[in-house]
Structure formats: structure tokens, C-alpha cells
């Protein structure tokens, strides 16, 4: 599997570490406990198909990436810098 990092280009998957679903990009605003935190920490779908995940390019540019991929075919459909997604530049 290869991932096309927006900064580094097409790279081997051994340079990357998956973190999990893109839910991790949207930390709940409230400081106390709430169902939003339950969702943020624990509740995940397990889709057979397209999903969006956070990947860390630790052996490359050290950017966090949002990767859209197909869990059935292992196709990588889209890769963006998480910082761009967060700032609305993607």
C-alpha cells in the first residue's frame, strides 16, 4: 500500500502510522463529561467501504494526514494535510 503525501509525494506505507477514524479531529468543546465525549473516545463504525482516517507520516514530513480510503479494495482515494482540513484550506 502506498500513500501520496501532499508534501512528500508517493511513499511506502511503512513510513506511516494509522491513528483511527477522523472523529479524532473533532474534539468536543465541553470540558465535562457528555455523550459527545463517549462518541469521541469510544463509538466507531466498522465500515466495509469508504472511510476517513488520521495517519501520521512519522518517517517523513511528520505531518498528520486525513486519508480517505476503501477498506474493501485498499484504494487510497484522497489524502490531505490535517492542518489544511482544520483551517479550511483543503
Amino acid at each position: 500500500m502506498r500513500i501520496k503525501c501532499p508534501l512528500c509525494g508517493d511513499r511506502d506505507s511503512r513510513e506511516f502510522t494509522p491513528m483511527g477514524h477522523e472523529t479524532y479531529m473533532n474534539r468536543p468543546d465541553d470540558e465535562g463529561w457528555s455523550p459527545a465525549w463517549d462518541n469521541y473516545l469510544h463509538l466507531r463504525d466498522n465500515p466495509a467501504g469508504i472511510t476517513r482516517e488520521m495517519w501520521y507520516h512519522g518517517a517523513g514530513c511528520t505531518s498528520w494526514l486525513r486519508v480517505e480510503r476503501d477498506t474493501v479494495t485498499h484504494d487510497i482515494l484522497r489524502v490531505e494535510l490535517a492542518v489544511d482540513v482544520k483551517r479550511g484550506n483543503a
Partner: peptide, 8 residues
């Protein structure tokens, strides 16, 4: 020549 990359 002149290209640089971080990898393993």
C-alpha cells in the same frame, strides 16, 4: 542532484 527527502 539537490533533491532531499526524509524517510527511513
Amino acid at each position: 542532484t539537490g533533491h532531499a527527502a526524509r524517510s527511513q
